[in-house]
């Protein structure tokens, strides 16, 4: 069977928490939901009903059965598969000319520069380096990006280039179209490799835009490696912390869909331009809050400083 993160809908694979059943009791139909309880047998038919209830209300991997005290093979390998996908997403390099991004890159003239972190390994252990541009990157940005735009969009790999691949081709055009409709001037968008959230300060010092939106890959969970965050800051500059920023997290197909994210981003930009600030004192209308956005898998848990 194919390992996957979701509980397999095949009833045979959700045999509830019994050890390897005694001979003659392993037939899949014994575990099918809806059968009457059979109090005299060890076959836990009622647990199958509980397992059905579970699937409707939680993504947690419960009632997955056991052999002895270990996982059944399908569950063990599904966990391995999901972790492998998450690890590969963390290690993947952002590739603007790869199949996912090449059309977007050509349309908007995207280019990529590096942060001061030389490689992935250094990036993971030196948050300070990921918060500023490399010397070469700074020169390139200064040469190619006109300063003083109303809106400067920056794309960062963060902890998942896969999230950039998955979300930016939809999100970036929608965001720039909405900005044009609002009459905002937009700077030349570009991407930063080995990027932490704090790089917004460095870019703000360099380009002096009114608002920066950083689209950055989140730390992958087992559920998805395709989740993106949008960090927003009004006139970001040295010394700004998370308290001066606004965050929309969990942007992906089954979380906050990109179209909805654009609505919220433009709403926040509007508020920032009106109030002249960003951060904790800007509150979104609660009506547009969606599914969980409070889970920590954010791009940069240490983005302050």
């Amino acid at each position: 069977m194919t390992p996957g993160h979701a509980p397999d809908p095949d009833p045979a694979s959700v045999t509830p928490a019994d050890a390897i059943p005694p001979a003659g009791t392993a037939s899949p139909d014994r575990t099918r939901p809806g059968r009457e309880p059979e109090a005299s047998t060890v076959v836990p038919v009622d647990l199958a009903a509980l397992a059905e209830r579970v699937r409707a209300v939680t993504p947690a991997r419960v009632f997955v059965g056991r052999t002895g005290t270990s996982y059944r093979t399908a569950n063990l390998l599904a966990l391995r598969a999901d972790h492998a996908a998450a690890r590969d997403a963390v290690d993947a390099e952002l590739d603007l000319t790869g199949p996912a991004l090449t059309t977007t890159t050509e349309r908007y003239g995207l280019f990529a520069v590096g942060s001061a972190a030389a490689d992935r390994a250094q990036y993971l252990r030196r948050p300070d380096l990921g918060r500023r541009l490399s010397d070469e990157g700074r020169a390139q940005v200064a040469a190619r990006c006109p300063p003083g735009a109303d809106l400067q969009v920056v794309i960062g790999d963060g902890l998942s280039a896969a999230a950039v691949d998955a979300q930016v081709p939809t999100l970036l055009p929608a965001l720039l179209t909405a900005a044009a409709e609002a009459g905002w001037s937009t700077g030349q968008p570009f991407a930063v490799r080995q990027c932490r959230v704090g790089i917004m300060n460095d870019i703000g010092d360099l380009l002096r835009p009114t608002v920066i939106v950083l689209l950055i890959g989140e730390r992958p969970g087992l559920a998805t490696a395709e989740s993106l965050s949008a960090y927003l800051a009004h006139r970001p500059r040295s010394g700004h912390t998370d308290a001066d920023r606004n965050l929309l997290s969990n942007i992906h197909r089954r979380g906050l869909p990109p179209a909805k994210a654009v609505e919220r981003i433009t709403g926040l930009i509007d508020a920032m331009r009106t109030l002249g600030i960003s951060g904790v004192s800007i509150k979104e209308p609660t009506a547009i809050r969606t599914l969980p956005t409070t889970a920590p898998p954010e791009a940069d848990p240490t983005s302050s400083t």
Partner: peptide, 23 residues
Amino acid sequence: PSADDVMLGYQSTSYHDAAGMRE
């Protein structure tokens, strides 16, 4: 459950793991 915390997005130890250690 299965060591996969679906809210916090990290992996810990599972019901199975704990039961295995007791054994």
